[in-house]
Amino acid sequence: MKNKILILVGSLVLAACVGPQPSAPTSTIQLVQSTSNIDELLAYNVQLRKMTPAELGRELQRINTYPAGPATNVRRAMALSLTRDAIDLAKAEAQLWNVMADRSVEAEKLKPLVQLLVGHYSDLRRVADSAEKSSVQLKEAQRKVDQLNDKLEALKNIERTLPAGGK
């Protein structure tokens, strides 16, 4: 019986020592749900593709009045890429690399789209360079053909002026 009383008293003493547990420190984590404007930018690209060159020029002027930011850089790059000018395509790539270097939350959300566009614009530049080389080679080949035709005509004229006495 003594043992039972000692156990009961010991349990009461231990229970008194424990007391109420302090609550674990909690911090409130608030998830900010900001929508990515990738869908908006893709829709914008579809609109750009439907524009005439004159409309595209006006749109570029309008974009240049927008406040600076990653989304604006992507818009500008999309518009520049459609002008069919190698210099503008290089500018478009530079705009996209600016977004890639940006560490803001907005830029981070746009990076998958930007990486896709960088690859696409890089391919476009390679194709344009290849087409230009082919065009230069074609012009050179046409020039040589024209020279050979001129020589052939000159030889035919010489042959016509020769006396026919050798027959």
Rank of each mutant, 00 (worst) to 15 (best):
R84I: 00
P67Q: 12
E55C: 06
P70I: 03
P25I: 00
D39C: 00
A101C: 00
Q30H: 02
M78V: 00
A86R: 10
L96Y: 13
S27D: 06
A43Y: 05
Y66F: 10
V32G: 01
I38L: 11
T28P: 01
I63T: 03
E153Q: 11
L6K: 14
L116I: 01
V74G: 05
G165A: 13
Q147E: 15
V145L: 13
D146G: 06
D146K: 10
K151A: 07
K151Q: 10
E106N: 00
P70T: 03
Q95T: 01
E106C: 01
S11F: 05
E40N: 09
I7Q: 12
E132A: 14
G57N: 13
D123K: 07
S27M: 05
A43Q: 12
Q47D: 12
E55V: 04
N98M: 07
P22T: 06
I5K: 07
T161L: 14
W97N: 12
S36D: 08
E55K: 15
I7K: 10
P112H: 05
G69C: 10
L31P: 00
Q47I: 13
Y44F: 15
A90F: 02
R103I: 15
R58G: 10
R49S: 15
R62A: 08
G119T: 12
Q142E: 13
G10Y: 12
L48F: 15
M1W: 12
G119F: 07
L12V: 13
V145D: 15
S130M: 12
V145Y: 13
Q30C: 06
L117I: 06
T72N: 05
W97H: 06
N37E: 02
V18Y: 08
Q21S: 09
D85W: 05
R160E: 14
A86M: 07
L82H: 00
A141M: 14
D88A: 06
P67S: 14
L42W: 03
M100S: 09
L60D: 02
V136M: 10
S134I: 04
V99R: 00
L41Y: 01
V13K: 07
S36W: 08
H120L: 14
L152I: 15
S134W: 01
R126W: 01
R160Q: 15
K133S: 15
N73S: 13
V32M: 10
Q115K: 11
G69W: 00
A24S: 08
K91R: 06
V118L: 13
A128T: 08
A128C: 08
D146M: 13
L138K: 05
